[in-house]
Design a protein around this nucleic acid. Structure first.
Length: 489
RNA sequence: GGCGCUAUCGUCUAGGGGUUAGGACGGAAGAUUCUCAAUCUUCAAACCCGGGUUCGAUUCCCGGUAGCGCUACCA
């Protein structure tokens, strides 16, 4: 086993207030890649301190999304089970004089202040409260919030070096006395997060850029708690085509990972796509396997500006919903999959749609559609005619070949019926027999093939004819041609 | 309002003081196969604006503008 000089540990810390969305998924992936690339440890931590908004359903949906990604993690924690640790660290910060009690009644959800017209730094009168006075009010049972005592008027600077955004500096005077503990004794996000990062020995915090400004507070906590902050790397945000941040309410299911799964994305393609948003391998590669991504990943390749996920707002067809590049990448990955593998992934989808199909049969069908599907679910529209017993009705006019008429269609079909009754049902056998038949009838091969194709597939656009006939088998083919003959005649 | 981050084709991006500003997706046109798809070829498409530094800025600096983030006893 290899040991890096410092133990590299990263974490993914979602708060279970909704489904796993694409931005979180990307954060998870980047953390995972970084850990794997450098022989580090990947920690999953559920940041569930917000009792009001956390739900079990959300926890499950996060697991569901992560499981589909199929990347795994090494250690797992629940923040709600570590409240003692958080309070302990808050207490030690308080004892060092770096925090103070604020007895001002809570302003939870006070929208005047967030969105704010003026800068709020601290509640007057509380910072200077003497320890004796503070203790007296606690003894009297007054509730209080614990606030960090940010240095004031000293010209102090808070700084950290971000692996993506570079050196960051902010005047302590511009940072408000943020809360560590709420008046009900529960830790705030800032405290809980940093306390856990300290305790779990997290070495690198890779997270969304929406935390960049919060990081100054975190640095203050880290320094108060253990003297040293971990390395930070902030990721550019994923945004909607209109530049707004992704939200389920505004943008619908396209922001949920399970939507991609259900639509028939391959997890490796989805991962590939997400990696290309805000990160570049710096060469011209686009389609990359999990291993290639792991090998190529580095923090230096991460961008600094917001990235648009180019989906269609209220989508028309399912395929048009998604970023075209994601769809293209998925098709690329589908075509790169061994037939056996692809077939195995297609089978459950086909069965779930109500078709009785054996793995052996699916294996035969797969090559026909492999280059014609972009999402796994497309198998249902690409190969439906193979699975159905009875072809859905189609327009008999479709049977008429290019530059031909119904007489030609009839001629082709009746001849085909004869020929196919005896020909060997292999690609080459069918090829020869049908081409010969066309020649006999004095029509072009295409004019011969199209009526057959429509008769057999129920539409003009379908997989190559000979392979299709072969897979369908003589019985079905003859039956469908017979039916088509009746339609034309 | 305050503080901060960002700015290359429609989108994802490469590049970087002197380049025909490269690639990909998507779009258009063509080639090709029995249709479709795949594949191949070609085309259209970008350095936010204004100053400064410089022999020379898309690149470096400053300002503006725009977008985004933070500004909660949410995370």
């Amino acid at each position: 086993m290899l040991y890096s000089p410092v133990m590299l540990r990263v974490r993914f810390a979602p708060s279970p207030t909704g489904f796993l969305h694409v931005g979180s998924a990307r954060t998870f992936i980047f953390n995972w890649l970084y850990a794997r690339r450098n022989g580090g440890t990947m920690v999953l931590r559920l940041d569930d301190t917000d009792v009001e908004r956390n739900t079990d359903a959300s926890v499950n949906s996060i697991y569901e999304g992560l499981r589909w990604l199929d990347l795994g993690w090494d250690e797992e924690y629940k923040q709600s089970e570590r409240l003692g640790l958080h309070r302990q660290i808050a207490e030690s910060i308080f004892q060092k004089g770096l925090a103070y009690r604020d007895f001002t009644p809570a302003h939870t959800g006070d929208s005047e202040r967030s969105g704010a017209l003026q800068t709020w730094l601290f509640n007057p009168g509380m910072r200077e409260l003497s320890r004796a006075e503070s203790d007296r009010r606690v003894a009297a049972g007054e509730p209080f919030a614990l606030r960090f005592r940010v240095p004031r008027g000293t010209g102090a600077l808070v700084r950290f070096d971000d692996a993506v955004y570079g050196e960051q500096v902010k005047a302590a005077d511009d940072i408000e006395d943020f809360a560590l503990l709420r008046s009900d004794g529960m830790p705030t996000y800032h405290l809980a997060s940093c306390a856990d990062d300290v305790d779990l020995r997290i070495s690198h915090i890779i997270r969304g850029q929406d935390h960049l400004s919060n990081t100054y507070k975190h640095v203050l906590i880290f320094e108060a708690a253990e003297g040293k902050a971990p390395q930070f790397a902030h990721l550019p945000l994923l945004v909607a085509p209109d530049g707004s941040k992704l939200s389920k309410r505004r943008h619908g299911p396209v922001v949920s990972v399970t939507t991609y799964r259900d639509a028939g994305f391959l997890p490796e393609a989805f991962i590939n796509f997400l990696c290309l948003l805000g990160w570049s391998p710096k060469d011209d590669r686009e389609k990359m396997s999990r291993q290639e991504l792991t090998d190529a990943f580095s923090l230096e390749g991460i961008n600094r500006s917001n990235t648009v996920v180019n989906f269609k707002e209220p989508a028309a067809t399912p395929e048009e919903t998604f970023d075209p590049k994601a769809v293209w990448l998925n098709a690329e990955h589908i075509r790169a999959l061994p037939v056996e593998d692809l077939s195995a992934r297609l089978l459950p989808i086909v069965r779930e749609a109500g078709f009785q199909v054996t793995p052996e049969r699916m294996l035969k069908v797969t090559p026909l559609i492999r280059e014609r599907i972009k999402l796994l679910r497309d198998v249902l529209t690409a190969a439906d005619f193979i699975f159905v017993e009875q072809l859905p009705p189609y327009d008999p006019a479709e049977l008429i070949p290019q530059k031909g008429d119904s007489a030609m269609a009839l001629k082709a079909l009746t001849r085909a019926r004869e020929v196919l009754a005896t020909t060997e049902f292999t690609h080459d056998g069918l090829d020869q027999a049908l081409r010969a038949a066309a020649q006999e009838l004095g029509i072009k091969a295409g004019q011969m093939f199209q009526p057959i194709r429509v008769a057999v597939c129920g539409r003009k656009n379908a997989p190559p004819l000979f392979e299709t006939l072969e897979v369908l088998g003589r019985e079905t083919v003859l039956k469908r041609i017979e039916q088509a003959v009746l339609e034309v005649g």
